[in-house]
């Protein structure tokens, strides 16, 4: 499957089109699966607009928005992961490993403690606080890890772990200080918990994904040049510093949007770009847009499992992604860090 030369536009379009079709199939399939056990015929009838009542609520108000959240959050986290990996030139870089998710989560919890009222103010406010938290965490990790312009792998990972622990502890402090009742859902939310969100939030989420996605995907070609090293990239006309800032802002925005609307779900940004790279090769112009679709598909599959595996109760989707992600992380750590380059 690996192509040695530059990928043609037609081939890329074909690939992404096929992937989009796959995502659509999974999404439609997920509409039919759930603990309410709506018969397939009834789901069809609801989609055709012929059935009202509880079945319609289940399919259109519960399953559909949740499927959309999974697609948006999975896509956002996977593109963020791909962006961070290209930036750090390391396959282990990922929003949760780098502590950026924890920073965003801290922003969200803080916003909830302060109380933002409701409506659009709350929706945008949560996302803004998450973004601020993600930026603080990301900058902190960078400042801790950077050595004379370079980002040594082990220092970067350690800095990410430390910053992540710091923000997790800060969240714990907030939970301890504030009445548990007011933050009662936080424990589950911290595990990553998809739930149907109102159309207004979905729209804000989609807009943030569009901006963040454009920042990262639009720079995919220059990210390829960056893998040659910053000096070489500069000779080819790439402003490495500006590029890094752009990718960092985009990835942080994507991470914070996912955290604000779905929770700090781990490992999606690790598994998906990595798996895609194994299949499609290292070209960022292919891997990053494919991650947008593949991340959505992966998180949707995980959430469909989480919704049904112990019905009528539910698991948090973060549990499923962690079950998949932890072994994968270990595999990458063993297989890849031995060789200096990703």
């Amino acid at each position: 499957m690996r192509s040695a030369g530059p990928i043609s536009g037609a081939r890329l379009a074909l690939l992404l089109g096929g992937l989009a079709l796959l995502v659509l199939l999974i999404a439609v399939g997920s509409l039919f699966i759930g603990s309410a056990r709506v018969p397939p015929g009834d789901v069809m009838a609801v989609l055709a607009g012929r059935v009202k009542g509880v079945d319609q609520v289940v399919v259109l108000s519960l399953r559909l928005p949740r499927i959309l959240v999974a697609l948006l959050a999975g896509g956002a986290l996977a593109v963020a992961g791909a962006g961070f990996q290209a930036l750090a030139r390391n396959p282990l870089a990922e929003p949760s490993v780098l502590g950026v998710s924890s920073g965003a989560a801290f922003g969200v919890v803080l916003a909830q403690v302060m109380g933002l009222g409701g409506g659009l103010v709350e929706t945008v406010g949560l996302a803004a606080c998450a973004f601020a938290g993600a930026l603080v965490a990301g900058v902190a990790v960078y400042l801790i890890a950077a050595r004379a312009g370079a980002l040594p792998v082990h220092t970067l990972l350690l800095a990410g772990v430390i910053v992540g622990i710091f923000f997790s502890s800060t969240i714990t402090v907030l939970i301890s200080v504030v009445d548990f009742d007011r933050l009662g859902g936080v424990i589950h939310w911290l595990l990553g918990n998809l739930s149907p969100i109102p159309p207004r939030s979905l729209a804000v989420f989609a807009a943030l994904l569009a901006v963040g996605g454009w920042l990262v995907i639009g720079a995919a070609r220059r990210l390829n040049l960056l893998t040659l090293g910053e000096e070489n990239a500069a000779q080819l006309g790439v402003d490495a510093e500006a590029l890094k800032r752009r990718i960092f802002a985009g990835a942080a925005l994507l991470t914070s949007a996912a955290v604000a609307f779905a929770g700090p779900i781990g490992f999606v940004g690790l598994i998906v770009p990595q798996a895609l790279r194994l299949v499609l090769g290292p070209d960022n112009r292919v891997v990053i847009p494919a991650a947008l679709l593949g991340g959505g598909a992966f998180l949707l599959l995980a959430d469909t499992l989480a919704r049904n595996v112990i019905a009528p109760a539910e698991l948090s989707v973060g549990v499923i992604t962690a079950f998949c992600g932890a072994p994968f992380f270990i595999y990458l750590l063993r297989a890849r860090t031995g060789t200096a380059q990703p």
Binding site: G34, S35, A36, R37, V38, V54, V57, V58, L62, R63, H188, S195, P196, R307, A311, P312, A313, E314
Partner: peptide
């Protein structure tokens, strides 16, 4: 006190 799927709860009408 248990976690529950909203759609399963609503399906019980």
């Amino acid at each position: 006190y248990r976690r529950y799927s909203l759609e399963a709860a609503l399906a019980r009408n």
